[in-house]
Nucleic acid binder design. Structure first.
Lengths: 337, 337
DNA sequence: ATGAAAGCGCTAACAG
DNA sequence: CTGTTAGCGCTTTCAT
């Protein structure tokens, strides 16, 4: 392996000058030239590990998601990566898959100083550890976080998920729906659920307990399964809210397989607004969340706490969701009222 | 920051003994005890960067994909991660998004010794650089590689893509289709295309040049667009082969929006067999590729070249595709023959 | 089994 | 602007 010392020797200067050239610091033209040719001739490439050790900084940031199978995270990942890149950091993506062990490994990466900071999405297990970590001060920013209370000592960038649920409910209520099923991931989608229920309660409507179905993972399959259950057992249900689009897609298919037309016989609304929701049949009405803004906010916050750890107080940034009406929701049929 | 020296001092031993304890090497019970308590009291965590520098090895492997928007790569990623994990390495995921600059960054990561090795999927740009790198010997394994000839000096784990295209064609031929459209990503899906055309040629059938449509990216949108074009301009086409499932999904929707029933009026077949293809309407017939086996093979090969760089000759491992019949293909209507 | 010393490849601090 | 001198925190000899 060719090192900086080799280059220095060949160029007839010191390591320092080589280092300066590489760092773009001011250098006499001749030195510059000598170093550059030596680098080329030797095919020298710097060793990032050595640099990181000397600087006490790796310039690596990891972005942790529960699973890539949910396009929601894949979409955010691309945004985050771009922003991180912009600021001269390298991006590392990792998945926890709702596995405590994997989640812990990611934390170790941080505590063992292999990375400078971490963006962490909520999943079943991460909350617990995040709170522990908050005590020491490692740069962590939580995003798309839903469980309350938000950990103190940690910044979080998220969506007003309660409002998101509320918006979904309001839309269905306006369309005249009263008997609504809800399929939600438990315990992670509590806020979406409670916002939804709030809206109904404010209209003096209580949702039958049996129409509320929880799932362990917010997958297409879970949505499909619970969709079938609700539709089979409760024909009076005229609309279903799934707490994410992947599950809503499952409901869509479940309904249509059972011969129920969407949206004529049954309305379906999701939450996420992932790209594929524009292409389901029918296209899915959903609550969109500003992924790009969330990504950017989160990265900015993290960088601040990495670079100026002193003056960065934990803050909670909440962004607004918005209703996106497509074709999976419609006014309730007169006959069903 | 608390270092190993701090622990040693507190425990009244040398750094070496601390290191031994952490590495699980044989140590006298008392030493073990002293070290362990010191570690706990101080809250010591090792510094991975320092370790990497001393060992000359980071234990990091990066897995490079063109885009996460294609679930195909997300699916492989999970498999790869698991295998890498099994062998005690850490997994880093990166995307190139068909961007030469991004692709180069990934290579630099390797040449600058920030990672031990790299698994690289084919995309528009990576081929060129891969060949360059092959000359020095950095551990790289190419996977899901389709462009010929395969770079010498580099191992590749891939699918017999020509055979995959051939299988798709054979299926359509058996169903009686003669007028088939093809939508393929160019230049990356050449082999799939040529296998498809081979099968037709062997049956004495030439596919009309205008029925072959290339796309710049293998996305849903591209499939949708070209699907519409073909169906609009060539009503005699009774089946369409899209070189990946994402595009096939686009074709499915295009056809149905134009009032053509799938598979009664038109058959559609994809290639990839991504998870969501079981849930399209109708479920998509596709050519499946053994992602799990491919992932494992690739990782194994890479680890071998990292750990025993001496005796690892570049090899080409090709896995077999298989036809998965669902409901988007059917025998051609008598009237259309 | 443990201690002492050297070194991984780089950056930082200072003097010139 | 350049050279010198010290580390960064760990692992690896090599004695003991």
């Amino acid at each position: 392996m060719v090192t900086m010392a080799d280059v220095a020797r060949k160029a007839g200067v010191t390591k320092q000058s080589v280092s300066n050239v590489l760092a773009g610091k001011p250098v006499r033209p001749e030195t510059l030239e000598k170093v550059i040719t030596a680098v080329k001739e030797l095919g020298y490439t710097p060793n990032l590990v050595a640099r990181a050790l000397a600087r006490g900084k790796t310039n690596l940031i990891s972005f942790v998601v529960p699973t890539l199978k949910n396009p929601f995270y894949a979409e955010i990942a691309e945004e985050v990566e771009q922003t991180i890149d912009e600021f001269g950091y390298q991006f590392i993506l990792s998945t926890t898959r709702n596995d405590l062990k994997r989640s812990r490994q990611q934390f170790e990466f941080l505590t063992h100083r292999a990375i400078d900071g971490m963006l962490l999405a909520e999943d079943h297990y991460s909350s617990y550890d995040a709170k522990t970590l908050a005590q020491r001060d490692f740069p962590i920013v939580l995003y798309s976080w839903e469980s309350l209370p938000y950990p103190d000592n940690l910044s979080v960038v998220s969506i007003d998920f309660r409002q998101a649920g509320f918006l979904a409910a309001s839309h269905l209520l306006e369309l005249g729906h009263r008997n609504c099923g809800v399929i939600y991931e438990n315990p992670t989608h509590q806020l979406r659920l409670s916002g939804f229920l709030d809206a109904f309660r404010m209209n003096g409507i209580t949702i039958h307990e049996n129409w509320l179905r929880s799932t362990a993972d917010a997958s297409y399959e879970s949505g499909y399964l619970q969709g079938k259950n609700i539709l089979r057992d409760f024909p009076q249900v005229s609309a279903i809210f799934a707490t994410n689009d992947l599950m809503a897609a499952g409901v869509l298919d479940a309904a249509q397989e059972m011969g129920r037309d969407v949206p004529k016989d049954i309305s379906v609304i999701g939450l996420d607004d992932i790209a594929q929701s524009a292409h389901t049949r029918p296209p899915l009405t959903s609550i969109s969340i500003p992924k790009k803004a969330m990504a950017r906010e989160a990265v900015l916050l993290l960088l601040r706490s990495i670079e100026y750890s002193a003056d960065s107080l934990p803050v909670i940034t909440l962004l607004h969701p918005a209703l996106v009406i497509r074709r999976s929701t419609a006014p309730i049929e007169e006959s069903l009222r």
